[in-house]
C-alpha cells in the first residue's frame, strides 16, 4: 500500500521562504534551498514550492529557486504560483518541477488544466484550491459549504469549492492541493469537513493543507480521506520536525515511510 505522505511547503517570495496567517502578514522563514535540504533529510516525502511573488521580477527568480532546489534534493517537487499558460508549466518542469499546481488562472480559464494534462500528463497536473467557508446565512443547521478564494485570500469568487474540484478533475487534474483559508497559518487543525467533502467528490489523491500543528491534526485529515498532509509554519518555526511527525504517526499505527536511522550530514 502506498504510504501516507508528509509534505513541507515552501511559500517563496523574491527568493526567500515566507509564511503568514491566512495568506497575509508574510514574515521571512529562511533560504529555500537550505530548507528543502533539511526537510528532505528529515524524511519529507515530497516538497511543495508555491511562488507567492506579486511581481514579474519575483516570478523570474522563482524559476531559479526551483532549479536550485531541484539540484539539491532527490524527492518530488510540486511547484505552483503564477502558472497562467501551458508555457509557464513547461518552464517549471524544465527547471525541475515534477508536478505543476494551477490556481487562479485555471479558475478564469479551466481549459488550462486540460492543456497541461494533454501535454504533460495527469501525473504532472495539480489543482491548488484555496477554499473559505461560506457564511452560514439564515439557517445555522445548514450543511457547511466553501467557496474558492483568490488574490491571497482577499477576493471571494463565489465559485463552490467542491464543484470546482469536480470540474478540475474531469478536465484532467491528477491531484488536489486543498488549502483551507480559514485555517491557514493558525495551527487550529485542518478543515476536516472540507477534506471529507472533497474526498467523496473526487477519486484523485488529496493533499490536506492549512492549519496543521500536531500529528493528531494530520491523523484527522487522513481519516477524512486525505492521501497526504502538507504543513509549513510548524516546520519553519521549529515547532516540530518532519521526522518527529512521522514517528508520531507511525506510533499511532499509520503507514508512513520512516528512515531506518537518523539522517547523516553529508
Amino acid at each position: 500500500m502506498v504510504r501516507l505522505r508528509v509534505i513541507p511547503c515552501l511559500d517563496v517570495k523574491d527568493g526567500r521562504v515566507v509564511k503568514g496567517v491566512r495568506f497575509q502578514g508574510l514574515r521571512d522563514a529562511g533560504d529555500p534551498v537550505e530548507r528543502a535540504v533539511s526537510y528532505a533529510a528529515s524524511g519529507a516525502d515530497e516538497l511543495c514550492l508555491l511562488d507567492v511573488s506579486a511581481t514579474r521580477e519575483g516570478r523570474g527568480s522563482a524559476v531559479e529557486t526551483v532549479r536550485a532546489v531541484r539540484a539539491a534534493i532527490g524527492i518530488p517537487l510540486t511547484v505552483g504560483g503564477g502558472v497562467r499558460r501551458i508555457e509557464d508549466a513547461a518552464r517549471l518542469l524544465d527547471a525541475g518541477a515534477d508536478k505543476v499546481a494551477v490556481n487562479t488562472a485555471a479558475l478564469e480559464r479551466p481549459e488550462l488544466i486540460a492543456e497541461i494534462r494533454a501535454r504533460l500528463g495527469a501525473q504532472c497536473t495539480v489543482l491548488s484550491l484555496d477554499a473559505a467557508r461560506r457564511e452560514e446565512g439564515d439557517r445555522p443547521d445548514s450543511p457547511p459549504s466553501w467557496e474558492v478564494v483568490v488574490a491571497g485570500g482577499t477576493r471571494r469568487t463565489g465559485t463552490d469549492a467542491i464543484e470546482w474540484a469536480r470540474l478540475a478533475v474531469s478536465l484532467g487534474a491528477g491531484e488536489i492541493l486543498a488549502t483551507s483559508w480559514d485555517r491557514d497559518g493558525t495551527g487550529d487543525g485542518y478543515d476536516a469537513e472540507l477534506l471529507r467533502a472533497l474526498a467523496s467528490a473526487v477519486s484523485v489523491p488529496l493533499i490536506a493543507s492549512g492549519g496543521a500543528r500536531t500529528a493528531g491534526h494530520m491523523e484527522t485529515a487522513l481519516d477524512a480521506g486525505a492521501s497526504a498532509v502538507l504543513a509549513a509554519s510548524i516546520f519553519h518555526d521549529g515547532v516540530t520536525t518532519v521526522r518527529q511527525i512521522k514517528l508520531e504517526l507511525a506510533r499511532s499505527g499509520r503507514d508512513v515511510r520512516l528512515p531506518l536511522c537518523p539522517p547523516t550530514v553529508q
Binding site: 502506498v2 504510504r3 501516507l4 505522505r5 484523485v204 492521501s227
Partner: peptide, 26 residues
Amino acid sequence: RLPHFGWNLVEPDPGCTMLTAGEAYF
C-alpha cells in the same frame, strides 16, 4: 485513488542483482 502517487514498498525476486527491497516513489 489514482494516480498512484507516493512511496511504496518494492520487493525484488531473489534473482535481482541491482534492485533491492525498499521504498520508492511512484
